[in-house]
Structure formats: structure tokens, C-alpha cells
Amino acid sequence: MQKILVTGAGGQLGLELQAIAKQHPQFEFIFTDREELPLNDLDTIATGLNNIRPDIIISAGAYTAVDKAETEKELVDVVNHLAVAELAKWAAIHTAKLIHISTDYVFDGTSKTPLSEMEATAPINWYGETKLRGEQALLRYLPEGIIIRTAWVYSEFGTNFVKTMLRLMNEKDTISVVNDQIGSPTYASDLAEVIMAIIVSEKWEPGIFHYSNNGEISWYDFAKAIQEISGLGCEVYGVTSDQFPTLAKRPKYSLLNKTKIQETYHVVIPHWKDSLERMLTTYI
């Protein structure tokens, strides 16, 4: 029986993978978090992997606090870049497969059309820079690896935009949300399903793939949909990014072109609103 190691077990994607693991009894899943496989301690990663001996690694662990990343640069680089290099080196030596999760933040947000995997990268914050370095390390040490860039991830688990909006809408009569950052959200449950579809397929196509739910919206549009589906009475107003300054810059345009992953693995990508309704039905 093949072993699948999932890093970042306590994160949104890790928890969604735990939720669907029972649907795949042909695999033995090992879920690790900071205690079992600390990605900030590079000296212990190879030892941990030698103890587990996975056949497949899903690299879902990351430092994702985008604003805080600007003030903890060394730690962020270790987790998002150097730890990925260690995973890739081990996988190369032991002929293990590796799927690594990356982000739309590797782009600068100036595109006007959906971003393909061939688009030039140019991160505008430290989180994006370290995630790009992680991609580059993986491709250098393990050309046979797979990278999936995703965006605006949410689920019923952890901290995310949807849960924050629900909390604020219950606490306040009005909220303001930026309306000039464009992309498409990703329900972590859908992403988990796609990862498993790749693993169980008879095809292993190395390289970079893009995945998010279908559709094109702003954060304001997303918030309005959350408000409407949940039936909360809070008023949602749109504001520009310069009215809502953050420590780390955000890309203005993050819409990912999903053609490659659709054509390669024949995955069905749900519309963002359909996935949001499924998540809210489960959560509320």
C-alpha cells in the first residue's frame, strides 16, 4: 500500500484532505503538522521523511500570514522556500512523487487577462517572493514534481475570508470590502479533490498547474455573495485598495487560467458561487 504524506495537516487544505482520505482506502495517509514534521527546522526534515518513507508527498504546509510575513522574513523563507527544497531533495533521492501547493501571489497583478502557467512571475510581497523561491527550488531539485498554484483559498476550517466575513456581518451593520482586486476563490475541498484525482490518475505530468474555482469576481463581489447566501442583514460597501492599506501589497489581478489542468487531467472545475453555497450549507 502506497503512503501519502501530507504536510500542513492543520491548515485548510490539510483538513480537507483528511476529510476525504477515507474515500481512498487504497492509500495509507500520514498527516503531519508543526509537531510531527516542523518545516521551520530544516535539520529534522530528512530524518522525519526517512522515518515515514512516503511514496507521495503533498506539500500543503506553508507560512501564509501575508502581512505578518513582512516582519518575519527569515522564518517565512525557511518554511516557504528552504523546507520545500528539503522535501524535493528527499523525493528525488527516494523516487517519491511530490505535489506542492503554491499561490497566485507569485505574480505582480498587472495582467489584464487570466494568468497562464507561462506568465512571467514578479512577486510584490515577501510571502509571494518566498513561495516563488520554493517553486524554483522544487523545479531545480525535482523536475518530476508537480506545482499547483491556487488563489483565495477558503473552507469551513481555519481562518479565511468567508469565515471572517460571516463574523463581521454578525457583529456589524455595515462593512467595507475592496472592489479593485480581481480573481476567483478556491474552495479547499475542491482543491483536495483535484489533488487526489491527479494521484489516482494513470498520468503524472510534471510541471506547474493553475487551479481555482471558475468565474471572475472582486473581494467585494465575494463578500456580497456571502451576505446574500447566508441571509445576513449587514450592508456591504465597496472601497478601493488605497482606502484599506495593508502592510503587504496585494496583486490587483489574480485570475488564473485553468486550461492546462483541465486538459491534462480532465477535472471538472465548479463555479465559485456553487462551491461557496456548498461550503456555507455545511458550515452555517
Rank of each mutant, 00 (worst) to 15 (best):
I217L: 09
T130C: 11
P25W: 03
H24K: 13
V200P: 06
D190H: 09
P123S: 03
G10F: 13
H24Y: 15
G145H: 13
K3P: 03
E129V: 14
T64L: 13
Q243G: 04
L15G: 07
G109H: 06
E86M: 14
A62D: 00
T164W: 13
F157M: 01
H100V: 12
G10M: 08
F29P: 12
Q12R: 07
N170T: 10
T121E: 02
L276Y: 07
T264I: 15
F209G: 09
R149W: 01
D77G: 15
E119F: 09
Y187K: 04
L42E: 02
A223N: 09
A225G: 00
P54K: 12
L37F: 08
Y265I: 06
E277Y: 08
K258T: 14
I124W: 08
L98M: 15
L39S: 01
F107A: 03
E28T: 13
H24L: 11
D67Q: 09
R278H: 04
S111K: 03
L75K: 08
A197V: 03
P114L: 10
A88E: 07
T240A: 08
I147T: 13
E228M: 06
G158N: 10
F27W: 10
K3H: 04
T240H: 09
Y283P: 04
F107V: 03
T282H: 10
V6S: 05
G48I: 06
K258I: 12
A120P: 00
F107C: 04
M1S: 11
V6R: 05
A92T: 02
S176W: 06
K260T: 11
W272C: 05
Y253E: 14
A83E: 01
I99L: 14
A225L: 05
V106C: 03
K163P: 01
A46P: 00
P114K: 10
T7M: 02
A69R: 09
H271A: 10
Y127C: 02
P185W: 06
D180V: 12
Q23Y: 08
T110Y: 07
L139T: 13
V267I: 15
L280Y: 07
L98W: 00
E156V: 11
D190S: 12
T47I: 14
V84P: 03
S155V: 02
P123R: 07
F222R: 10
W204F: 08
E117M: 09
K22M: 06
E129Q: 15
K22R: 13
I217H: 04
T186N: 02
A9N: 00
I199H: 04
V106M: 02
N160S: 02
S155K: 07
L139C: 11
T71C: 02
H210M: 09
I124Y: 07
E36W: 05
R34C: 01
T71F: 09
D55T: 12
D173L: 12
T159Q: 11
D41V: 12
V78M: 12
E36A: 15
F27Y: 14
